[in-house]
Structures are given as C-alpha cells and as structure tokens.
Design a protein around this nucleic acid. Sequence first.
DNA 1: GTCTATAATTCGATAGAC
DNA 2: GTCTATCGAATTATAGAC
Lengths: 204, 204
Amino acid sequence: MAEKKKKEALSTEEKIITAARKLFMQKGYDATKTRDIAKEAGINLALLNYYFRSKEKLFELVMEENMGQFMMVIGNIVNNEETSMEQKIESLVANYIDMLTRVPDMPLFVMTHMKNNPQRLKMRERFLGSHFMKQVQEGIKKGEITPINPVNIMINIVGLTIFPFIGRPMIQNNNGITTEQFNALMQERKKLIPKWIGAILKAK
Amino acid sequence: MAEKKKKEALSTEEKIITAARKLFMQKGYDATKTRDIAKEAGINLALLNYYFRSKEKLFELVMEENMGQFMMVIGNIVNNEETSMEQKIESLVANYIDMLTRVPDMPLFVMTHMKNNPQRLKMRERFLGSHFMKQVQEGIKKGEITPINPVNIMINIVGLTIFPFIGRPMIQNNNGITTEQFNALMQERKKLIPKWIGAILKAK
DNA sequence: GTCTATAATTCGATAGAC
DNA sequence: GTCTATCGAATTATAGAC
C-alpha cells in the first residue's frame, strides 16, 4: 500500500507542485510561465488555477517549503547540548552539502528571493544565541580560540559550505570539470571545511 | 569643459544605460520592464528602442560591462611577478570588497546570469595558470603549505570575499545590523580574510 | 476534476507626427 | 531626437462544457 516511491502515484496537486518547484528554482519566478509548469506537470493550464488560485500563491507555497528546508538543518544541530563544537561544525557542513547536492539550485533561488523579500528567519536566536555559540565563547575565554565576531563565524561556515553551489557555473565552466567531479569535490570539502574552520578559529 | 561629474550632463543614451544597469541588477532581466527603465531614465519608452534596438541588446550591453568589471580585478593582481603570495591575496580581497561595497548587487546578478548562460571566462588561464598558483605550488614543495586542490583555493578566497554580499539580506536581517555596520564588517574582513586564508593553507 | 476556448491585461516594439 | 498612440504577441486567469 504505502508506496510513495511510485512516480505515477502522484496526485494532480503534487504533480503541479513538483513541476513548479523544479521550474521556479531553475529559472526564477518571472521567467517561469504557468504554461511551462502545466506542460511539465503533464496537466492542463486551467488546473493550475483550480488548485492554487494563482501563480503567485503557487510560488509562495514552493518558496516557504524551500526556506523551511534551507533553515531547518541549522536549528537541531546547533542546539544539541551533547555534541562538541567540532562535531556541530562537521554535522552542519555535511548536512548542507548533502542537501545541496540533491538540490543545487536552492541557494541561488533562496538568496535571490530574500534580496527582494526581506524576512526575519530567527537566525539570531537560532544561531547567535545557540549552544554552539556558547561553546565558541567558552573557547575564547579559555584562550583556545582567537576572539572573533560571531557574525564572521556564521558567514565563514555558511560561505565556505554553500558558496560553491552558488558559484558552480563559474567553477565548473572555467575548470572544465563535470558535475560528477564537482560533487566529488564537495564530498571532499565535507572533511576539509571543518578542518579549515578550526584553523581559522585559531589563527592569530 | 570636461565635467563628466554633472548629473545633468548625461546624454539620453547614458541616462538609459544608467537606469538599465540599476534596474537589471536590482530585479533581474525578466522582472525589469522596458517601461520601468524608461521611467527611471526620465525618457520615453520609444527612445529605448531607438537607441538600443531591443531590451535584450540593452541587457547584453549592461551584462558585458558587469562581467568585465567582475573579472578584470583578477588578472592584473594574480600575475604580478613582483608581489608575494600574501600580497596578492590581500590585494585581491581588498579590491573585490571595495568594488562590491560600491555595487553590492553585482555578485548575485552575475551568478544568476552565469547559471543560465554558461560562458568561458578564461579563468583557468587567469587563475589556475597564474603566477599566484605557481607561488602556491612552490610553497607546497617547500612544505610551507599543506597540499591542496587549486580549485579549493579559488573557491575559498572568492567565497569568503564575495559570499557576504550574496547573503547580505540574510546576514543583515537576521542580525539586525545596518548597511553601515555591514560595510564596516566588510572592511574588517579585508584584514581578516588574508589571515584566515593563511591559516587554511597551513592547516593539517 | 479536467478540459477547450477565450477574456483581460501586460509588455516589447513600431509607426508616424513634430 | 523625442514624443504619443497603437499594434501584436505573450501571459495570467476564468467561463463554461463535459
């Protein structure tokens, strides 16, 4: 019974969302036409409005889903009181790289949307007030970590992890590497980034 | 005579390009309407086609200008045979941060465009085959630098430098900091990033 | 629920007067 | 060179049959 895997088991509603998610991420809101979505979903144009009222409503749905996914990873990891600072960094980096390898267009999509639709993501509480940050502050007190602006830690971890996916066209086209090679490089970075962050935190 | 500074001294052609540059960077190609550009330039819609034939031609003009600016910085610095590796990194980071502080929307604009319009930027020759990279290879031979994939060096320098501008909405909105504070943070990073890159290159 | 046909609007581009 | 007016295509959304 519970065979969610079957592609043909998708309801019309799900087919439309799946198509919309794909096209919106690939080409952006304005470049994606409702006709494209209908065609990609294999349904009629009118059904799109029947289920979702408008293109914008459909977009908002896809967008919320993405923002949630993009941010969800952080919370659980960063406030786990049973892991070390190093373990948290490893986990953060690995989780993001795994997710972005599946949906590589997500970061550019999310960043573009946030640029024109600023919204609080409660990252202040999630990240700056997290157990992870307390561990960093402790490390600084003990002299194990060079004093650093918490915002810079966030920028560096997130930047080193997700920037490659944003700059992927630049990276791939100019180094003549395939998608497989790119993905392999990201897998390597899973181990390297935590090491590098460690070095950054100790740099004088 | 030569008073290019005067705002009112702009020709109609220049007024259109200036408006187009602003709006294309702000909202992207599809979301920018020719009517918006005309209004922003303070001229009539018909003049846009009179001077530039089509919206697409106008976009290509603005785009080439941007790509050139975005890439220009690299070449000269990275192949200067009279500077040390450390000096090159400092110079690269400082130049990009200064440029992006003036036009903070540029990176997202360029990355979005490259995603759908892959093009060779000759960065392979510019960066991977540069004097800078030869200095890195030497450092590795001498044991002063931990062996590292050249592509990762590029990703890390570029990522740490320009990612903050791509993720600016996220960074600003979630830490409650103003644009002035953001810019000050970027100025600090001018000194910090070279130090961090140094630490990364020595991390074992 | 799903389709065809079409209404209503927007947008890029052009014609033609000045 | 610059403007007003408008064309024609594309696009979102809806009406109405099945």
